[in-house]
Each structure stands twice: as structure tokens, then as C-alpha cells.
Nucleic acid binder design. Sequence first.
RNA 1: GUCCCCAUCGUCUAGCCUGGCCUAGGACAUUGCCCUUUCAAGGCAGUAACACGGGUUCAAAUCCCGUUGGGGACACCA
Length: 471
Amino acid sequence: MTQVRVRFAPSPTGFLHIGGVRTALFNWLFARQQKGVFILRIEDTDQSRSIDESIQAIIAGMKWVGLDWDEGPYRQTERIDLYRSHALQLLEKGRAYWCVCKAEELDARRKEAEARGLSPKYDGRCRDRGLTNHAGAVALRFKAPQEGETVIDDLIKGKIVFDNNVQDDLIILRSNGYPTYNFSVVVDDALMNITHVVRGDDHLTNTPRQVPIFQALGFPVPQFGHLPMILGSDKSRLSKRHGATSIMAYKDMGYLPDAMLNYLVRLGWSHGDQEIFTRQELIEQFSWKKVQSSAAVFNPEKLLWVNAEYIKVSPPSQVAQALLPLLETVGLRDEVQAVSAGWLAQLVVLVKERAKTLVEMVDWVRPYFGQAVTCDEEAAEKFLTPAIAPILGKLLTRFEAFPAFSKQQWEEAFKQLVDEEGVKMGQLAQPVRVALTGRTASPGLFDVMEVLGRDRTLFRLRQGIERASRA
RNA sequence: GUCCCCAUCGUCUAGCCUGGCCUAGGACAUUGCCCUUUCAAGGCAGUAACACGGGUUCAAAUCCCGUUGGGGACACCA
């Protein structure tokens, strides 16, 4: 058995998008499962579009989601000689020819053909000219087979047959000496011994163009697998108008990388009714047979749910770690440094059921930093009233009598007071909640007190009473 | 225009390959109820789908053909 070698080959145009991550993920999963090699290759042969920042963005994105590669990143611009020598090889074999047609002419002819309702295929006028010398800027074309058919057995879609007579003699070397995509991929995939080419559905029709090149060059043809596309809510190709498509945008919105991956893998792959998977489970269970062959609509709501699940079940210390930088950006740097990692994890446990993203969590967690609390005005007006002040005072006295905080004791004392005063639970609980957290919604009161600690609880209660008496 | 891919609840999907267990299962969303000191979380229940038309067969969501619909590709972009 030869070792599995797969690659993820994005072109550096902008950032790493969601579709790219999913393609990378499937490749990565397969590589890890098969104890194979996962390669990162940057397809940057188009000089006018490639920028270094994009490459950095791709790497940063891959690192964030934790898809590690074993080889690369290779850059095609560093391998230009390889493409040229192989292109010339094809010329020598009579499988390629120089084409002197100008780009503008080609463009005009294509437009004309389209207007007449014909195929915009290259008419092959230089095919048999036998130009041996390329004086000036000319391009090299591949002599694509025009008879028979090219059959691929796709890992996901099964057997697909293409008629060769619809294939174009595509340009493999541009007049500027740079290779075109369809040629450089073949050379790279062959030279890098890629065993399985797994990419987006949009490359499906590139396959019958590439297969004959593998053959002409004398390379074995790898297996192909074409992943269905991700669509937006209107079923058109996912793009910016459907919302964020950059993977890093999701980091900023407070998503956990594992949640992203879990959502993305389920978008087009399934294992019975299971929704949540550990990475290990994914690696073990992954199978091409279970990959969907139809396109999937990206659903942000389900992603949100998956993220919430991960926030709930991930180790609190790990969630706290991811939360840290976000806390600092909202101006809690000093406060965060003043507390222990253990307490932070405790805080995460306190609010994890109500935060669907880390960004939401930041908001939930805010009231627990600092000695005093900033009160929501509306909440204070409604609940910190003169009428409740005396009862709050009694509660304070009873709490103060305890030398230390005990959830059970304090709760008992609280309930007893409610009984004695003949008020409803909520009548006392809400004012206390506002006093302690400044808000009308919070986790359970005694859980809040536990995180706050005895001193701060009493301090905030006193402040609340003061405010209530003043009102 | 040509070529290719695809088709189960609003969405992601199970089932399809190896027809009968499917009065089509799960999840998200949604609705109602329960729990409850608030907000969540959780529990229970409900609404909701085999695109259409022909075959094949005792039997079709499952196999075949067609139609329709959706998507993708047809660059000296990747």
C-alpha cells in the first residue's frame, strides 16, 4: 500500500474562507485517518492577484482551526522552472504547440462565438502550424485529445464520463512564461506524489482537462474527489453578501475553532444521527462514502447552536483561555490580571449555559469583575425601591452573621426570610439580583454569590440597599 | 449556447448502493407545555419533506428513463 498523500491548495486571494476550511478539513481528516501526509500548497501563479498578506492570512486561519500540515507551505512561484521544463517536455513529445493568437483576438472570437450561440472553445488555428520557434511573446498550448472520452471515478460522485471532443487546447504556458493553473496543478500533484486530489465541486470540469496532461507527461493519474459547494441562504454560491465568509471573522465573533470544524464537517458529511464529534471521532469515522454529493446551504443558526454546545462541554479552563483576549479588548485587562485562572474557569462555569459565543460570554461575565457593580438604571429603578430596602437590610444582617459563605446556609437563610416576610421569592430575589449583578437576568443567585465571594456579596448588597433607600 | 454535477421537513441530514423493517428517523429553527428566584440551560409534545411524470416489480424515498428546478464549468483567473 502506498502512503496516502493529499493536499490543500488555496490561491492567495484575500483570506481563508469557510469553503476552503472545509476542503482542507476533509483532506486533513483523510490524511490523519490513513496515517498519510497532508500538504499545504499555495497556488500563486497569477502575479496580478497574489499578495503576501493573503498567504499569511491562510496560514493564520489554518493554525487557528488547528489543521496542521506535514509539508509546505509550497509556493508555486518558487517552482516555475519545474513547470517550464515539463511544458517543454510536452512540446518535444508533440503534445503541445506554440500559439501566436493574441489575447485580445481570442477574447473577441470567444465573444463572437458566444453571441452566435456556439461553444466558446478555442478554434485550434495554431494547432497544426508547427511553429517551432517562439519569436516574441507567445503561449504554449496543450494538444488535448479530441476523440474518445475521459472517465474519472470520483470518490464522492462516482463514475463521470466526459467527451473529449468538447475539450479545449488549453494554454499551459502564458506568453509571460508563467504556467496556468490547470498545468501547474498537474505538475505539482504529480511531482508531490499526491494520491488523492480532493477539492471543491467547482473543479469537477477541470478534471477532464487535467487527466490527459498527467497521461501525456507519463505520470500516474491520482484519484479525484469533488466536494459539494457551500451555498448561501438563497442557494447561490456562498459569498460576502450572505454574511461573514472569512474563517477569522468567526474567531472575532466568538466562535470556538472546534465548533467551526464540527459544523463544517456536518455540512456534507454525516455519521448516523450524531451531531457532535471529537476530533478523534472524526478521524476514526470519516469516510468518503458518507460525504454528501449535493450542495449544502450554510446555516449560521445551526453553527451558533454547535458553538453553544462546545462552550457547554469544553473544559472550562480552555474556554477561559479563549475568552482572555476578548476580555482584554473590552478594557478588562487589569481586572483579568488580578484574578486567578481557576476563578476565571469558575466564572465560565457560571455563565456557559447562557452564552452562545465568546462575545456573548464577555457580556455575561462583566459584572463579576471589580468590587462595585454598574447598575442598569432601569433595573435599579424597578427593583431597588424604598419598599424593599428594609427587607434587604434584614437579609444583609443575616448574611453578615455568617463568618463564611456557604451556598446551602445562605440559601436557607434567604428562604426563611422570604417566609417570615410573607413575600414571594421573586420579590426579594430580583432586587438582590440587581444589587449583585446590576441586571435583571443572571445565573442562580447563590451561584453568583459563590463566585463573588462573601465580601463582595455583602459589599454590593449594602450598595444596593443604599440606592434603594435613596430612591 | 455547450458540457458536468445535484434533487428527502424552511435548513443540515438518516434511510437509497444491497427495493419490503418508512403510517420516512434525528438535529437546528419554530410553536406549546413542564421545570423555575430572573435569564438561560434542560425535559416533554407539536407543525413540517421523499420535486414532477412515466416505467420495472407482488412491492419504490430506494432501481431505470424523461421533465422541471437548482448549482458549477467553459480565460494567457485559480
